[in-house]
């Protein structure tokens, strides 16, 4: 059976999806990245290996997310795509009539405008975290509410309180002020949801024509309080769809892209990756005043990839050459002597 693997390593969560040739999801998982993407990738691979249908053979792998390059090297990707394309592809596959995609993840949020099944425009916020999942999570901790129950709490509110949502700092002080006035937790939670929605709309959707159906995906889409707030914002005039797969849409998209790309022979490293050891270290390349911080990824001691040099002269080959040429080069690249 021919299957394709999609991997989405984000700032907060890591998603794996295994699909068949008809783009149907066979198995998927949703894990916390917890600041260690390599560990999360290994865990995800182990899960996929255990839950994959018997006889499934991975034909191609696609990676996306902020750690897409790293994941691409570790898993052995055939295609490495940005999150915007991956999310759009999944949304179009899931809801062919989609005209707008809202994606709210851990550290950034995206708005994708789709017309006739093609991406026409997109916007992404990275300047401010007030419209993202981290903001909600942070405020949930302040309210002493588990993030999973935040949405339910918000839906219990009789009314919302208006909380300034322009930036995290303002929102926080405003929220505390409203708490001190005696508003209950459900009202505050609802107010925060509305603030996030306003922030999203002001930051990303200004000047763009938002048409339905809207597909709302990303981790935050599981928060019913936010979904309700979006519906209220559009006075229920625009249809908002939250697909059951909303959490793993990026990975699904990466899988679909991999299946469309379908190489002759996949660069997939196999499930044995989980047994290999990966190590990341960095050094400052002092060849010019830029002093780029070059990040080295090593797999079982051999250099697999280097990132971060502006001039692009650092490749596994050049690093090897350099360490063969000079002893200091070896120390630089491999960290011998220094550690």
């Amino acid at each position: 059976m021919k299957v394709f693997l999609g991997v989405d390593v984000g700032s907060v969560t890591t998603k794996f999806v295994l699909i068949d040739e008809q783009k149907n999801i066979l198995t998927s998982c949703y894990l916390k990245t917890s600041g260690d993407p390599i560990l999360a990738i290994k865990e995800g691979l182990r899960y996929i290996e255990n839950t994959a249908p018997s006889g499934a053979k991975i034909q191609a792998v696609g990676t996306t997310g902020s750690a897409r390059s790293l994941a691409g090297v570790v898993v052995g990707a055939d295609i490495i795509k940005n999150e915007i394309t991956a999310h759009a592809v999944a949304a179009i596959t899931r809801v062919p009539a989609v005209r707008t995609v809202f994606e709210i993840g851990g550290q950034d949020s995206k708005l994708i405008i789709i017309r006739d099944g093609i991406v026409e425009d997109f916007a992404m916020n990275t300047i401010c975290a007030a419209g993202t999942g981290s903001f909600l999570e942070h405020q949930a901790v302040r309210l002493n509410v588990p993030i999973e129950e935040f949405g339910k709490l918000a839906s219990q509110a009789r009314q919302g309180v208006r909380i300034a949502g322009r930036c995290t700092v303002f929102a926080e002080s405003d929220m505390i002020h409203k708490q001190q006035l005696g508003f209950g937790k459900p009202e505050i939670a609802k107010g925060l949801s509305e603030a996030l929605v306003r922030n999203f709309i002001n930051n990303l959707a200004s000047g763009k024509s938002i048409e339905g159906p809207i597909v709302f995906q990303g981790g935050v889409a599981s928060n019913e309080g936010i979904v309700e707030a979006f519906r209220d914002f559009y006075r229920r005039e625009i249809e908002i769809v939250v697909p059951p797969e909303h959490g793993v849409m990026g990975a699904w998209g990466a899988g679909i892209l991999a299946s469309e790309y379908a190489p002759q022979e996949s660069s997939f490293q196999g499930f044995s990756v989980v047994n290999r050891s990966f190590e990341t270290r960095s050094f400052n390349c002092e060849d010019c005043p830029n002093s780029c911080e070059v990040v080295v990824l090593r797999e079982d001691g051999t250099v697999k990839a280097l990132w971060g040099s502006r001039c692009g002269k650092w490749t596994p080959q050049s690093a090897q050459q350099r360490s063969a040429d000079t002893e200091t080069g070896a120390a630089e690249v491999y960290g011998y002597g220094s550690s």
């Binding site: 902020s66 795509k81 940005n82 999150e83 915007i84 394309t85 950034d108 006739d116 093609i118 991406v119 026409e120 425009d121 997109f122 992404m124 990275t126």
Partner: peptide, 23 residues
């Protein structure tokens, strides 16, 4: 300005152009 954000935007933009080009 962060390089990661810029690269993601540029890549996505090129994808948009490619998909449009195909149509």
């Amino acid at each position: 300005a962060g390089e990661a954000g810029l690269v993601t935007r540029v890549e996505a933009f090129v994808d948009v152009l490619e998909r449009r080009g195909k149509m």
